[in-house]
Design a protein around this nucleic acid. Structure first.
Length: 331
DNA sequence: ACCCCGCACGGAGTTACATCA
DNA sequence: GATGATGTAACTCCGTGCGGG
C-alpha cells in the first residue's frame, strides 16, 4: 500500500535494492489498481482504509517491551507440540544471529537468498529459542515447502490461536511484508513454521487489498451516482433553455456578451462567448439537434475537467458543483 | 554486454478445512 | 446432528527481479 509512512515506521532495513524493488513493485501494483478505481483526476484524498496504521498504537513490542508478549506467546502452540525452551528467547541480535545456527536452513538460506536483507534490522526482541520443533529446521529453509514434513496429512488445516493471530496482526501493521530474517524470527517467536508466517502474510495482504478494493468500488459507485445526477440536471437545464428559446427567440439573436449564461456553466457572461460555444448553443438549440444527451455531452471537452474537478473536489461528500438554479433571463 | 538458468518471492486464484448459525 | 455460509490456512500457477555462469 502506499506508505511512505510505513517505510518510515518500518525502518527495519527491509530496505536494500532488491526488496525495495519488490516492495515497490507491490506497492505500485496496488496503487495502480487503486488509482484506476478511484475517480481519475480527483484531488481528493483517496478513501483509503486505515488498514495499515502508520504508527503502531497498540504498543507492538518490536524492540524490547515484548516480554509480556513473550509470556503470552509461551503456550501458543495449538498446532504443534510445545517447544520447551520458550522462555529462553535471547535478544535477537542481527550481528550475532547466533541463534540461527539451528536454522541454518532457514536463516542461512534466508540471508543468502536475500540480497536486500540488511542484516538484523529486525528489531524484535527475540529471545534465543531453547529448541524448536523438529520440523522447523527442515521447514524453515524451504520457505515454499508444503507441510508434508509435518508428519501428518499434507493439508491439515491449522487454526492459529487468537494470540498468534493478534501478534501477526500487530506485526503486519508494522510491515506488511517480511524479509526472510523477520519471517524466521516471527515464526520462532510464535512457534510457527516460517512457511506459516509467510502464508499468513500473503493472505493478509490479499485481504487488505480486497477490502481496499471494496472501498474503492463504493467510492466509484458514489461517483457514478453523482455523475448521473449531474447529467440529469444538465438535461433539465438544456430543456429549459430550449423552452426559453421557443418562448423568447429573440434572445438567440442577441450578442453573445449580453447573454446571461447558466451560472453552472462557469462562464462569465461579460466575456464574449467563443464561437464554438455559440455554435454549440445554436446546435443545441436546433430542434432535434442530436437529442438532449448528445447535446449535453457535446459540451466543449476542455470545459469538462473543471466541471469534474468541481464535482469531486470536496472531500468525501461528493457534492455537486455549485449549481445555483438556472435563472431564466428576466426581461 | 548479453543471454540463459535457477532461485526466491509476491500476487492472484483456488482448494480444503474449521467454525458458526 | 445435518447443512449451508463464512473465514481462512494452505496450495498452485505465473510473473518478476536478481545473481551467477
Amino acid at each position: 500500500m502506499t506508505d511512505a509512512g510505513r517505510e518510515l515506521v518500518l525502518g527495519l532495513g527491509v530496505g536494500g535494492a532488491g526488496s525495495a524493488g519488490r516492495e515497490e513493485r507491490g506497492r505500485r501494483d496496488l496503487e495502480v489498481a487503486a488509482a484506476a478505481m478511484r475517480c481519475g483526476s480527483s484531488p481528493e484524498p483517496s478513501m483509503r482504509l486505515a488498514l495499515l496504521p502508520m504508527a503502531p498504537t497498540l504498543g507492538f513490542p518490536w524492540p524490547s517491551e515484548n516480554r509480556h508478549l513473550e509470556a503470552s506467546t509461551r503456550g501458543f502452540d495449538v498446532n504443534r507440540a510445545p517447544s520447551c525452551g520458550a522462555s529462553a528467547w535471547g535478544a535477537y541480535s542481527a550481528a550475532g544471529a547466533d541463534d540461527e545456527q539451528e536454522d541454518a536452513g532457514a536463516a542461512g538460506a534466508a540471508v543468502s537468498s536475500s540480497p536486500n536483507d540488511s542484516g538484523g534490522s529486525f528489531p524484535m526482541d527475540f529471545s534465543a529459542h531453547g529448541e524448536r520443533g523438529p520440523s522447523d529446521a527442515a521447514q524453515g529453509g524451504g520457505s515454499r515447502g508444503s507441510d508434508e514434513d509435518d508428519g501428518g496429512s499434507a493439508r491439515k488445516k491449522l487454526r492459529l490461536s487468537k494470540e498468534q493471530a493478534a501478534f501477526l496482526e500487530e506485526s503486519f501493521k508494522e510491515h506488511s511484508t517480511l524479509n526472510p530474517r523477520q519471517k524466521v524470527a516471527l515464526a520462532k517467536q510464535l512457534n510457527l513454521r516460517p512457511r506459516q508466517v509467510e502464508v499468513w502474510f500473503q493472505n493478509r495482504r490479499a485481504r487488505t487489498k480486497l477490502k481496499q478494493t471494496e472501498v474503492d468500488c463504493e467510492y466509484l459507485k458514489r461517483c457514478c451516482e453523482t455523475l448521473t445526477e449531474e447529467n440529469r440536471r444538465l438535461q433539465k437545464e438544456l430543456a429549459e433553455l430550449r423552452a426559453l428559446k421557443t418562448v423568447h427567440p429573440f434572445y438567440m439573436n442577441l450578442p453573445a456578451t449580453t447573454l446571461s449564461m447558466c451560472p453552472s456553466c462557469e462562464r462569465v457572461a461579460s466575456t464574449s462567448a467563443p464561437a464554438a460555444n455559440s455554435s454549440a448553443a445554436a446546435s443545441a438549440a436546433t430542434p432535434n439537434a442530436g437529442g438532449s444527451i448528445a447535446a449535453a455531452t457535446a459540451a466543449p471537452p476542455e470545459r469538462r475537467p473543471s466541471s469534474f474537478a468541481a464535482l469531486f473536489s470536496s472531500a468525501r461528500g461528493f457534492p455537486m458543483a455549485a449549481q445555483p438554479e438556472t435563472q431564466a433571463p428576466s426581461s
